[in-house]
């Protein structure tokens, strides 16, 4: 396996190109501050959705507690960043937050991941609520008043870096033998177990990795939006993330990315319709699910579309 295959070089080139073009547009001012916020929202949502997709879409474990992990990252990031106002502090905050989220993910995952389906969903939801209540009552988090004046170190460079890193790492994980083990759990847990796969281990692994990246997204969020408080990370936030995953297609990374972009564009566009924006949003959600319940991409990736085309041609 050579790392520098043609495909990998192509991907690297595309990433660098996107980065430079957007950076250029930002510095020229064509992408103004407002569109920058939309871009930041998209990047953070991509990280959240892709990491939840690993848990829910690929491993088949229905989690409603992703915002809880996000909040751990956000608070660690914010507290460290407020003490150390430097890029070093920012990065330290991100990694401390991500590691703390992972740790909590493992601790919670080991007992709860024995549950299945909706029971797991309600248990993860409960866990996220417990995390939120704890943050609401701690002194260091300043309770309901929240933490304000968090310095903004998150910029396009870091957003792009972490988004790309998340997507590539999770993509590689899924393509590895670990990832295939996770997918086999989604398809049939008992069959997977009888093939000798340690299902608990892989479920906890997927859960922990998901929590890690959710922690990163949380830290980026707190650093970009200056202010956090516990109720931002309530169960409605978990549901927002789940909506992106389902809309994009469970088990499709490119689907999650597309859905994150689509939803961000949609909400930005809807901002103009002050009075009815939430009504339109809810209606769209219902209509999209009725007409396309498997999401935009289903379980396919964008690259699969090209492949199947080639196959069709060959058959034809």
């Amino acid at each position: 396996m050579k790392a520098l295959t043609k495909k990998n070089l192509l991907i690297l080139g595309a990433i660098l190109l996107t980065f430079t073009v957007v950076q250029g547009l930002i510095s020229v001012g064509i992408i103004n501050k407002f569109y920058e916020i939309t871009i930041a929202m998209i990047c953070i949502n991509i990280i959240l959705a892709v990491s939840l997709n690993l848990v829910t879409g690929f491993t088949g474990q229905f989690s409603l507690g992703h915002a809880g992990f996000m909040s751990i990252g956000a608070y660690f990031g914010a507290v460290i960043n407020l003490q150390m106002e430097s890029t070093g502090g920012f990065l330290l905050g991100i990694f401390a937050g991500a590691l703390a989220a992972t740790l909590v993910g493992i601790l919670i995952g080991i007992p709860t991941l024995r549950l299945k389906g909706d029971y797991l969903a309600i248990a993860t939801l409960g866990m996220a609520e417990i995390i939120r209540v704890v943050f609401l009552n701690l002194d260091i988090t300043n309770g309901a008043a929240g933490l304000s004046g968090i310095p903004r170190y998150t910029n396009w460079l870091w957003l792009c870096f972490f988004t790309v890193a998340t997507v590539l790492l999770i993509n590689n994980f899924i393509k590895s033998s670990y990832g295939r083990a996770c997918i086999s759990i989604r398809e049939d847990e008992i069959a997977a177990e009888s093939m000798g796969i340690n299902t608990t281990k892989y479920k906890v692994m997927a859960f922990a990795i998901g929590a890690f990246f959710a922690g990163i997204a949380g830290a980026l969020h707190s650093s970009y939006f200056y202010f956090i408080r516990p109720d931002i990370f309530g169960f409605l936030k978990s549901i927002d993330i789940l909506i992106i995953v389902v809309l994009g297609g469970m088990g499709s990374i490119t689907g999650s990315i597309l859905a994150a972009i689509l939803l961000a564009v949609l909400t930005t566009y809807l901002q103009a319709f002050t009075a009815v924006r939430m009504i339109i949003y809810a209606l769209l959600l219902v209509v999209i699910m009725i007409f396309r319940p498997q999401g935009i991409m289903g379980t396919k990736e964008i690259s699969d579309l090209f492949k199947s085309k080639k196959k069709d041609e060959r058959i034809g």
Partner: peptide
């Protein structure tokens, strides 16, 4: 899960 999202909608 698709029905669940519809229910949320």
């Amino acid at each position: 899960i698709a029905v669940l999202i519809t229910a949320i909608g």
